Amino acid sequence: MARPFPILAIAALVAFPLPAAAETAGEKEARIRAAIEVCDKGAAVPLDPTALAAPVQFHELIDLADPTRLRDLVAACREAMIGAPGETRLTLQHLRSAIAASNGQRAVFIPDILPLAASASAEANFLLYLVYRDAPLETALAREEAVAALIAAADAGHQSALGAAIVEFRFGPNVVRDASRAAHYAEGMMTMPRQGPTLAGASEEQARAWGRRYLGEILVTGTGFADAERARGFAIVSDLYEAGDRGMLVPYLTALR
């Protein structure tokens, strides 16, 4: 199937509104520099070795209480990308913010995502899966391609991809349910690497805690685990339950049977 023309290429061809007065070279440079700073801070990509700020997970881009924040971020990243062509960091930051703001019209971004995913970007691979998951009938991707992209991102230690892989292998629908693989990715989330080259993301510690929680629950409620693995799961579940996590009641009672 023919791929549509990249939407970011189209965006780059659209001229910005002219300022009220002629802009000097120094003013243009300052404007672009300010846009780059906003984009770098607001849309830094997880596991990007070139990121200059703390990583922002995809779901953290979306602020339902203040939708204008994301629109402003998209505009800043677009200006930064066009003002500094060739900076892959800025291209990916604009791409992910534009996808987040797209209100479900995400399939048009696939031509932009594919070359970045081919360069082994964990975020781009996660975005491929995300676009497919949200509208499988509207994309030119096969399910196998989307799942392979998700696995590549999760295996790289990408926080959001690990969470999605846990859900897929526990509940589907895009892979065959497999408690063992769900446990594998839960442990991967529990021990995932720092998401930024120098700074951690805002939700990393919480995600690691959830990875441990998922692992305990999967090991005591899933099938096919050895006694030693079940014992490990029970130790996690009982520790959480006795610490006051009432969400562990069912797994705790299941383990006691």
Rank of each mutant, 00 (worst) to 15 (best):
P111V: 00
A98Y: 12
R213I: 01
E187M: 11
G196T: 06
T91W: 11
P4T: 12
A75Q: 08
L150Y: 08
Y185A: 12
A140V: 11
D72W: 02
S238T: 14
A146H: 07
A51W: 02
I10G: 10
E123L: 12
E37Q: 14
E79R: 15
L199Q: 11
D112V: 03
S119F: 11
Y214R: 08
G201K: 03
P111I: 00
E187W: 10
E123I: 15
L162P: 04
E144D: 11
R212K: 15
S119I: 14
T91S: 13
V131G: 03
Y214L: 10
L127A: 03
V220N: 04
A44Y: 08
R143V: 02
L73R: 12
D239M: 06
A235C: 10
A43C: 00
G196E: 05
A209P: 12
P85K: 01
E123F: 14
G222K: 15
M189W: 04
D48C: 04
A207Q: 08
R194Y: 12
L240I: 12
G157V: 01
A148T: 04
A202C: 05
I110P: 00
G224T: 02
A153M: 06
Q195A: 06
L249N: 05
H94T: 10
T198E: 15
A152M: 15
Y185G: 09
A2I: 08
G104Y: 01
E27M: 02
F16I: 09
S121G: 10
R208V: 00
I236Q: 07
A2P: 12
L95N: 00
E187L: 14
G172L: 05
V45N: 07
A22M: 04
P111W: 01
S97H: 11
Y132N: 08
R170C: 06
A153I: 07
L8Q: 07
A153Y: 04
L52C: 03
S97T: 10
D72A: 06
G104H: 02
V250A: 15
D72I: 03
P85N: 02
R213W: 04
A117T: 05
E123K: 11
Y129Q: 07
L253E: 09
L8Y: 06
A140N: 12
D72N: 07
V237Q: 08
A186C: 02
R177G: 00
A152N: 14
R257F: 08
T198H: 14
R170L: 09
D40E: 15
L52M: 07
R31F: 02
L141S: 10
G188D: 00
S203H: 03
P49M: 06
E204T: 08
L253S: 06
I151W: 01
G86E: 13
G224N: 04
E144T: 13
D155Q: 08
L127V: 03
L13T: 14
A44K: 09
N174F: 11
F5Q: 01
L128F: 11
T91L: 15
A51M: 02
A65S: 13
M189G: 05
Q93D: 04
